[in-house]
Design a protein around this nucleic acid. Structure first.
Length: 732
DNA sequence: GCGATCAGCT
DNA sequence: CACAGCTGATCGC
């Protein structure tokens, strides 16, 4: 159905197990040593050995905070942890997910021969390979030039239109701020009781009349309500704690007369023709305030199991929120809260969020660049401003973090709220788990076993807060079918398929790189994807980098070529996790140990790599001249020089590889040309186009295959224009 | 003192 | 620019 070259690809039962094994096999590998552009015999650095070890050991230090993690024996031998609301379903087990490693290698080899159809048949066992020599004699980098044949081409047209024009305008349940909802609901409450004709402004949290207070007092008050456990009525203008007449009135209503507080709820239920459920609301003491946090799951839990009433209620809640937004957009905006609350940032922050209109909040979004919205170029900008977690927490949960039709959030720890108790984490990279801290107490975190181990080891989240999800196996979470697949991004990364009861399946890719296994899985989903939440990191035609296998092979051959000089130190850049495939493959092919700092080694131990892979790592830097270092070490020649000084006794040349997809199209001279080479004295740095995200063509292939009704870009989407531009590019 | 968070930086 | 972080300062408990 898809690619004409699709073959009976096999997977191991857990794709994670394959990590690091799936790219290049040395089977049939030519041992020919190629001329290497960077092997100039330069003089050893004459710089004196300085006391600069700290810099080079930064990796050590930064990873040393690693907590002791749960003994892996316990983890690995444990059956899959299933909580009360999660159930394994055995009716969907792919028979293909079992194979021997030998088979796997064979498949990998076969696949790579297919994928590496560039002019340089890197895997060709034929030693003559005239092409190879000629290519490399010109430039080893030139072998990385992108070719269209590198992309995953499907011979068959998919046949289905990618219905991007028929996008449903789904508004997400949590699309409005908590504060806005509070404002709305509380004013509704006020409507039900007599009040002054004047512009009454009450605190939505405690109900205190704050209309007579100055703005600073309102800020302090509302922040205190939000932030502290102090009872709201204790907070009064000036921050002094005293009881006001307004607050005492309100407090008495709320605390001693729950029936009154619940009256609006009952009215509201009547209005929905759902009065029969009022007992459930009364019993659970759901008032206007708590109503705003209600999720579908909550409704089920209080006995509203029928889909119709649930939908009615959720729809009504959504409308309430929308009305609130409209009224606030039209109404009196904040008066003076746009100013930078210089003196008391923490105090002003929350109140600013609270009183400012949604449009005002959007203006606050840090945006260093104006989005042109042209379809030509969509500059990368991470969707979530990574810097101001505290501000972000109170903003709307963005659509790429919510799963329509479910009470789930994905990679949304920056937006932690009480209204959700199911938090999915696609992988262990900071920009996805940021906001998740040891004190997390908002339900469960759902993730792969590898990610769970990392979260436990690095952040200290206890195991009882972690729910490991199996791969390639449909499970039920809170009554919703969920299936996770290997995302081929970093170890433990997952793509998640949600199949809510409304029949509108949602596929959240997290960060991913499309490969053939994924293509095969996509054809076997058994449901049509309504909403595709897509990693659009490289959603620009200029990012057409080669397959990982090609780049890995380039690096390996570059190391081989330079290995005649025993005083060469090779550096390979890496993140906390990610890029393992490069140095693991280098170790296998070159049959050389790789030095990784001790803390990094502890991380690697979380990755469930087989023992035969782990044997290649050493935390003794004297045992190897191939060192794994953080990416930012390689990014800076200054740091490289420090390393050079540190190792001046042992090494006379440093050859560093910085594996990144961004090498494409960055500079004018090198736009579209991979494998940029930089040299300063005895230090050579290669920026190699190794990406753990999809290239643009891979994205297009994937979208074509999935053929979703709606696409939500998860990256670069801070404006509607840029989102639309990306979608247009993907579908064009 | 410690963890969480933030600005600045690569 | 920045894939995904790090560092040092600050804040709050």
């Amino acid at each position: 159905m898809i690619g004409k070259k699709r073959r009976t690809v096999s997977l191991s039962s857990t794709p994670d197990d394959n990590y690091g094994k799936s790219s290049v096999s040395n089977t049939g590998k030519s041992q020919k040593v190629f001329p290497f552009l960077g092997k100039e015999n330069v003089h050893p650095s004459s710089t004196t050995h300085k006391d600069v070890k700290e810099a080079s050991e930064a990796f050590h230090q930064t990873q040393d905070g690693c907590h002791d993690y749960h003994p892996s024996a316990n983890i690995q031998n444990d059956p899959i942890l299933i909580s009360g609301d999660i159930n394994l379903s055995s009716h969907w087990v792919d028979p293909c997910f079992s194979t021997s490693l030998d088979e796997l290698d064979a498949v990998i080899f076969d696949n790579s021969a297919y994928t590496c159809s560039s002019p340089c048949q890197l895997r060709s066992p034929d030693p003559c390979t005239v092409d190879n020599v000629s290519v490399e004699s010109h430039s080893i980098e030139s072998r990385l030039l992108p070719t269209s044949s590198l992309s995953l081409r499907n011979g068959d047209e998919h046949g289905q239109d990618v219905g991007g024009n028929d996008v449903e305008d789904e508004k997400d349940f949590e699309s409005n701020t908590q504060f806005g909802v509070l404002m709305r609901l509380c004013s509704e409450e006020d409507d039900s009781s007599p009040r002054d004709p004047g512009p009454l402004l009450v605190c939505p949290l405690c109900g205190v009349d704050i209309s007579q207070w100055d703005e600073e007092s309102r800020q302090c008050h509302a922040n205190a309500c939000l932030d502290s456990s102090v009872t709201p009525e204790e907070i009064s203008p000036g921050g002094a704690r005293k009881q006001t007449s307004q607050s005492s009135d309100k407090a008495s209503v709320q605390s001693s007369e729950p029936t009154t507080a619940l009256a609006p709820i009952i009215e509201w239920l009547h209005g929905l023709d759902l009065a029969k459920y009022k007992a459930a609301f009364i019993q659970q003491e759901i008032d206007w305030e708590s109503l705003q946090w209600l999720t579908e799951e909550d409704l089920i839990s209080i006995g509203i199991n029928a889909l119709g009433p649930r939908k009615k209620i959720m729809q009504s809640l959504k409308q309430l929120r929308n009305e609130d937004n409209i009224s606030k957009d039209q109404g009196n905006g904040d008066s003076g809260y746009t100013e930078d609350g210089t003196k008391k940032p923490t105090t002003n922050k929350l109140i600013t969020e609270y009183f400012s209109s949604p449009s005002g909040a959007k203006k606050n979004l840090p945006s260093s660049r104006q989005q042109t919205g042209t379809a030509k170029s969509v500059p990368r900008q991470k969707q979530i401003p990574a810097k101001s977690t505290r501000n972000v927490k109170n903003k709307d949960v963005p659509p790429w973090c919510t799963i329509p039709g479910t009470p789930f959030r994905v990679d949304a720890f920056r937006y932690i709220r009480r209204d959700c108790s199911h938090w999915f984490l696609t992988h262990f990279h900071l920009d996805h788990y940021q906001g998740l801290t040891k004190s997390f107490s908002y339900g469960k975190v759902y993730c792969s076993m590898i990610t769970a181990k990392l979260v436990n080891a690095k952040i200290g989240i206890p195991w009882d807060k972690l729910q490991v999800v199996p791969l390639n196996q449909k499970i039920s979470i809170a009554g919703i079918d969920v299936t996770c697949y290997d995302a081929n991004h970093c170890p433990g990364s997952i793509i998640i398929l949600f199949e809510p009861p409304n029949g509108k399946a949602v596929l959240h890719t997290g960060d991913f790189r499309f490969n053939e296994d994924m293509a095969r899985i996509a054809t076997q989903l058994g449901c049509h994807i309504n909403t595709l939440i897509l990693d659009t990191t490289y959603c620009d035609p200029q990012y057409n980098f080669p397959k990982q296998e090609v780049v890995v092979q380039f690096i390996i051959e570059a190391i081989q070529a330079e290995s005649f000089n025993s005083k060469t130190l090779f550096l390979i850049g890496s993140y906390t996790i990610g890029k393992e495939r490069i140095f693991l493959e280098a170790a296998r092919v070159l049959r050389k140990k790789i030095y990784v700092p001790a803390a990094k080694l502890r991380l690697l131990e979380c990755l469930e790599l087989p023992a035969e892979d782990m044997q290649w790592f050493t935390s003794n830097d004297r045992e190897s001249n191939i060192h794994v270092v953080p990416m930012w070490t390689i990014a800076s020649f200054k740091r490289l020089k420090q390393l050079s000084c540190q190792y001046s006794e042992r090494f006379s040349l440093i050859v560093a590889f910085s594996p990144t997809g961004w090498t494409f199209g960055k500079g004018k001279k090198t736009a579209g040309r991979p494998g940029r080479r930089w040299q300063q004295g005895t230090i050579i740095r290669y920026e190699v186009p190794y990406s753990e995200h999809c290239s643009f063509e891979e994205l297009r292939e994937f979208v074509k295959l999935i053929s979703p009704v709606k696409i939500i870009p998860s990256v670069n989407n801070e404006s509607e224009a840029s989102s639309n531009a990306m979608i247009e590019l993907l579908l064009s």
